[in-house]
Amino acid sequence: MKNYQLRRLVNQPILKTSDVKPAIDGFEVLGAFNPAACLFGDEVILLLRVAEAPKPKTGQLAIPLLVEQDGVPTLTVQYLPKPPQPYDARVVTINKKTYLTSMSHLRLARSRDGIHFTIDEKPFLFPARMDESYGVEDARITFLEGKYWITYTAVSEHGPGVGLAVTTDFVNVERVGMILPPPNKDVALFPEKINGKYYLLHRPMVSEIGKPSVWLADSTDGMHWGNHRFLFGGRALSDERYAWEGAKIGAGPEPILTDEGWLVCYHGADATHAYALALALLDKEDPSIVLDRSALPLLTPELPWEREGFFPNVVFSNGWIQWPEDSDKAGQIWVYYGAADSGVGLAELVVVQTHPDEHG
């Protein structure tokens, strides 16, 4: 694999939580982060994950979720007593039932230059099904066969599964439904068929045995997926060289086809839950073959806004774009990443020549 590096294009977030208005009356935005990304005409489109929560009452937690009322999933707020023991700011268990403390939806942002964005005030995709009753999170976008396929994490009391929606214009969107049941997430579709089949990367969750790793699946129709197989996992946590990905890994945006093979961006987390970004290279004709992987992370949380936020020490990407050859940024790959669950950063993926050609 070529010697890639991720270089920050800006040293400040291009989008911050404070840039996003709440979509629900009486709620506040806790985070705007982890965007999917694509090119649409002459615009860059981001689908931000926006986490909102109702303002709490003294001594109580305000839990947003969908409940069925006359067969219709309806947004409600449940007020529950705060647990006496310390708890995660994102998730809490009360009376043996686990809740999220916020509800996420997908919000559309548009830009002509890829840096300065206008953010819609209303959600693009808001939880609407009971298998999304805790929220929709961390989308990926793949342009495939004339439409934009949007995979996202659909969360409910039964766990995180993978939903699929499609659009052609980013105005109208059609929910296809859940394509992988809980517990699963981090799905990235390949942007073209390989040997007549659709392919995707996914990240099944594990319990007592194993660690969260990247898997591969294929399909003949893009809806029903099978032939699931392990692709690659985090290298040994006991080996200090790979501690940065030793706890768990997951796929990022859709793979990009290069002259070497399919380039995959993925995230790795260490034992302290700090997240970093790296690359893997898969065979063009058989993506079940891993040709190479990063020995070291390409991007780690270093700047204050990457280290401090709603969930600290995180750089996490599920969106990148490759500028077309007829643009002034021809061929450049821009990587949009969530930072500390509180904003969005921007980096460029570049190839570095380590050994110049010698002529003699």
Rank of each mutant, 00 (worst) to 15 (best):
M223H: 15
R203W: 02
Y242D: 00
L263C: 07
N195K: 12
M223F: 15
L200H: 15
W262Q: 07
K248G: 05
G233I: 05
D239S: 02
G233V: 01
E260D: 13
W244C: 04
P255K: 11
E245D: 09
D270N: 13
E245Q: 12
H202K: 10
G233D: 04
R229P: 04
Y242R: 00
Y199R: 03
K248S: 07
M205G: 14
I256S: 03
Y198W: 07
G222N: 12
H202F: 15
A251Y: 02
Y198L: 02
F190N: 11
M223V: 14
E192L: 08
D239F: 09
D259H: 13
N195Q: 14
L237I: 08
T220P: 00
N195H: 14
Y242T: 13
H224L: 13
D218S: 15
L201P: 01
S213V: 00
L231R: 05
K197V: 05
F232H: 03
I194L: 10
W244H: 07
P204D: 06
K211N: 06
R241Y: 00
L189M: 13
H224G: 07
L189A: 08
K211F: 02
G233F: 03
V264K: 06
N195E: 13
A247F: 09
M205I: 03
R241V: 01
T220D: 14
A247Y: 04
